[in-house]
Design a protein around this nucleic acid. Structure first.
Length: 196
DNA sequence: AACCATTGCAACCGCAACATC
DNA sequence: AGATGTTGCGGTTGCAATGGT
């Protein structure tokens, strides 16, 4: 698998949109490689959690939220990138039919996939396919009543449809966060990060 | 080659739940 | 019990890449 990397810019050539006031400037927009490295190495050495202070301690001019999102959706070592397989898509459809837009819940059953990725996949592909194939109501593929309305009743709440399905890849990788690997400080280089 | 439309995805926003004091 | 800070989630947006004309 090859990690495609989002268009990243260097720290110097972007931003400056951020105000130049005395307040702690907060960067927004695409993450740079430099920022990614800082975040990865900081988490490797200190573990994740308490994102606001992590962002500060790491010297990142990002909100804790932003750091968390970047880590969970992109930088975690167990994040699988690449196309959603037909098997995964089936599972997504099945779980969505059951739970509606509970993306994070659905994501837990697709090791290595993030809620954001699944959500995007659903909106850009599956939803389109469904529309194209069968617009009229009362179809065999039923959208749950609670679809689209988050936090409404979960009829099957608590009833796991199945144990996590490891379609490809190994489950251990999914269950083993980087921070557990060792307490020794470790340092990731760009080559190590994006070579596979 | 240039322009425009569409697509796909990373990232942000707002809100609610939860934790701590 | 209320205030404040943090986390997690789902919805939405912005924009680069791609395709079509």
């Amino acid at each position: 698998m090859s990690l495609s990397f989002p268009p990243s810019t260097s720290l110097s050539d972007m931003d400056n949109k951020s105000c130049n006031t005395q307040e702690v400037e907060v960067r927004k927009g695409p993450w740079t490689m430099e920022e990614d490295l800082i975040l990865i190495n900081f988490i490797a050495n200190n573990g994740e959690g308490v994102w606001n202070s992590l962002a500060r301690s790491a010297g990142l001019k990002r909100t804790g939220k932003s750091c968390r999102l970047r880590w969970l959706n992109y930088l975690r070592p167990d994040v699988r990138r690449g196309n959603i397989t037909p098997e995964e898509q089936l599972l997504i459809m099945e779980l969505h039919a059951r739970w509606g837009n509970r993306w994070s819940k659905i994501a837990r059953h697709l090791p290595g996939r993030t809620d954001n990725e699944i959500k995007n996949h659903w909106r850009t592909r599956i939803q389109k396919q469904i529309k194209q194939s069968e617009p009229p109501p009362n179809q065999n593929f039923t959208v749950p009543e609670n679809a689209g309305t988050s936090h409404t009743c979960d009829i099957n709440e608590g009833v796991e449809p199945c144990s996590p399905v490891y379609i490809t890849g190994n489950p251990e990788a999914f269950a083993t966060p980087l921070s557990n690997e060792s307490n020794d400080s470790c340092f990731w280089s760009m080559e190590e990060l994006w070579s596979t």
